[in-house]
Design a protein around this nucleic acid. Sequence first.
DNA 1: CACAATACGGAGAGAGTCTCCGGTTAGCAA
DNA 2: TTGCTAACCGGAGACTCTCTCCGTATTGTG
Lengths: 182, 182
Amino acid sequence: MRADARRNYDRIVEVAREVFREQGYDASLDEVAKRAGVGPGTLYRHFPKRENLLDAIMQSWVDRVNETTDKALAFEGSDRELLLHWFEDYVGLISLHKGGPAKITSAMGDPNSPIITKCKVLSSANDRVIERLRADGALRDDVETLQVCRLVGGVATVADQGSLEPEAVRPMLAVVVDGLLK
Amino acid sequence: MRADARRNYDRIVEVAREVFREQGYDASLDEVAKRAGVGPGTLYRHFPKRENLLDAIMQSWVDRVNETTDKALAFEGSDRELLLHWFEDYVGLISLHKGGPAKITSAMGDPNSPIITKCKVLSSANDRVIERLRADGALRDDVETLQVCRLVGGVATVADQGSLEPEAVRPMLAVVVDGLLK
DNA sequence: CACAATACGGAGAGAGTCTCCGGTTAGCAA
DNA sequence: TTGCTAACCGGAGACTCTCTCCGTATTGTG
């Protein structure tokens, strides 16, 4: 990759992160290009689809997912509390910007999504927590990771679209937790 | 309302129902107008916002909600089965077209939404079921209707956006049911 | 049958997406 | 340094969708 291309690529990602945070995932890409000081052509060459841009934005986010999971697993307390905290973390992780929870959760089941590798990261993280609980014998038998991701993703999506406070989200997550544990 | 206005109004609603079913809630409104044989001006005069059109579409749907609720309450079986069946019905009721679950569920908490009266209908229906279970002493103490609507709406939203089969949705609803019952 | 009042519809402004291609620049070889 | 070429840039513009404005047409009434 040529140096000027790299420069533009990085700048676009940086600006897009900012714009998406301000205006949500539906923000105008031409505005992103404008703010990054490049033409629309440059943006669309680097990121043919909106989701390719999202994928690039989420590159650095992977580390945060893993760190968060480590901390969640190191938690000392009841299984119930552990799972509830993890779900709250999970919601936080996918709520990067307005529209994020829906986008990420629906990409979860689509092998052709440009952000599928990011979904895999998240799914694996969730799996670590689930397996830990399963090993404790705390979980119901028929629970699978994808299902859990969808359930918690659903709560996050509703919270995102209804601009709910964390205090309104917790009780919903608690219901899911209770439904999953023995 | 003048006769020609009434005619156009009805025709637009009828066509919109069809177009939304075919293409989802994001369908072009100009296309709706075109198919209804009216100009865009006419459509936007009757329905200033997309949601006003949705509200009109859902007018006849109210009866179906009430009928479905009656049937659900007449169910003879365990509380768990009753609630699971009701949730499946609920998902079906809000899955009128692609984008429906998200739209309806997020309008649930917004008093200014044009479809708020429809949300109230749904919320009341859900309340009837919840209260019946509460009277049986089957429910946890801190359960409230709005929360339940959001939880099930979240599942429906995820299912809608991921084009999930009913067989994939049922286990998720079962988790919610187990989390709500004592 | 005439005449308000009401409603129609399409041209077009504005915003967003995305492409195409003439012009520019980086990086390398001499 | 200079010159060359592959790689890259950027913006004009085609297309789509939303929504408005206003001259024209239709309805229902006195």
